[in-house]
Amino acid sequence: MNELVVRTTGLTKRYGKRAVVDRLDLHVERGQIYGFLGLNGAGKTTTIRMLMGLIHPSSGSVELFGRPVPAERMAVMRRVGALVESPSYYAHLSGRENLRVIATLLDLPEKRIDEVLAIVRLTADAGRRAGDYSLGMKQRLGIAAALLGSPELVVLDEPTNGLDPAGIHEIRDLIRSMPREHGITVLVSSHLLAEIDQMATSVGVIHSGRLLFQGPIDDLRARSRGHVRIEVDRPDVALPLAGGLPLVAAEAGALVLDSLVPGDAARLVSALVGGGVAVYRVEERKRTLEEIFLELTGEGAVA
């Protein structure tokens, strides 16, 4: 396994009796784009704030680059850039001045400000008051701030919230380029599966504070085993003919089978036709990631 850039062990945050984050074991490897997926209120932001040392865990621990946070936060945060929830900005300062505040604290040259402004394409608007920026520009300013210190880990909390489609596309391309062009590990949270699907290499699904799934996004997709649905005129006659096959259900006007190998499909159809059953339609239905996500979170809600 690659080096774990982020590792939480039994991370828990309780407010009163309610566990907002519940025994989370988060593993983010170097070079990954880790999609942290969950509905609004699932505990994503609280988790991210604990990663940054902004909120103190009720129990459990956080390690960034193998160092405990918040104990060694000062040493570690130099290597981390973050955009936590809505972008932070000083409204009365220009975009450039906002970045200069951070650059001063990190002891970075003015040149670096120009670089990140160029990366997020804010160079032309750098002199305008940040308070007058559109939401998309504020969001990009926040990402520029996260990138300023040339971090090894970038944490972006809902970076495309409130952006228009063009803006979303742009940010997504930017995030995808980070590991490739800058060797940055990215932890990006979202409540939109489609978004995570389009950029993440790994995914963690959080629901009601619990981590329901964690692993490569392809593993999540592999859960989407297909169903084969065969529409027939007389299911009652068709049913015995499908003997031995992984039958799931016989519903009104159709047989539903677990995925079929091509040979089985051909034999079944030929048996049905031979048995005098009219076959109207054979279709394979793959579950979408959306359905898997809903199923996961549905399970989570029941558990």
Partner: peptide, 15 residues
């Protein structure tokens, strides 16, 4: 307080 400055400032390597 105005622009969410605390969370950005305190996530930086400053005590």
């Amino acid at each position: 307080h105005m622009g969410g400055g605390w969370k950005q400032l305190l996530a930086l390597p400053v005590s």
